[in-house]
């Protein structure tokens, strides 16, 4: 999995690419922990280029969401589509998160 982040005024955008599975999900968690520790509060996760997610990935997403919310931060998911969206839905996690269909619409949340 490739992870990139891009700090904007209102939030940090974290872009996921490739596969988020039993092996790569820990990379995501480490990265997020680092960003949270460095004081970032609001996040938008960009799923545009993610092809695959398993329940390990879903749990990692949920865990970071909880951490951020406990710090009164915001955690938004954007561009969740295709089979990844389907997996969110069938796992039961889909209804917990609102999905934003673009980075812009997620960012609009902060203004």
């Amino acid at each position: 999995m490739i992870l990139q982040h891009n700090k904007k005024m209102e939030a940090t955008i974290v872009a996921l690419e490739g596969r988020m599975d039993a092996i790569t999900s820990s990379d995501y968690e480490i990265k997020m922990k680092g960003l949270i520790a460095s004081g970032e509060r609001n996040f938008v996760v960009d799923f545009e280029k993610l092809d695959y997610i398993s329940s390990v990935g879903l749990r990692a997403i949920l865990a970071t969401a909880k951490q951020i919310r406990s710090r009164n931060g915001k955690f938004l998911l954007a561009n969740v589509h295709g089979s990844v969206k389907e997996i969110f839905t069938i796992s039961g996690l889909g209804s917990i998160f609102p999905f934003y269909d673009s980075i812009d619409s997620a960012m609009a949340f902060f203004v």
């Binding site: 879903l58 749990r59 069938i90 796992s91 039961g92």
Partner: peptide, 12 residues
């Protein structure tokens, strides 16, 4: 027990 995993398995 792992609810997400189980839901996925049941659905597939």
């Amino acid at each position: 027990t792992d609810e997400f995993g189980l839901n996925i398995i049941k659905n597939l």
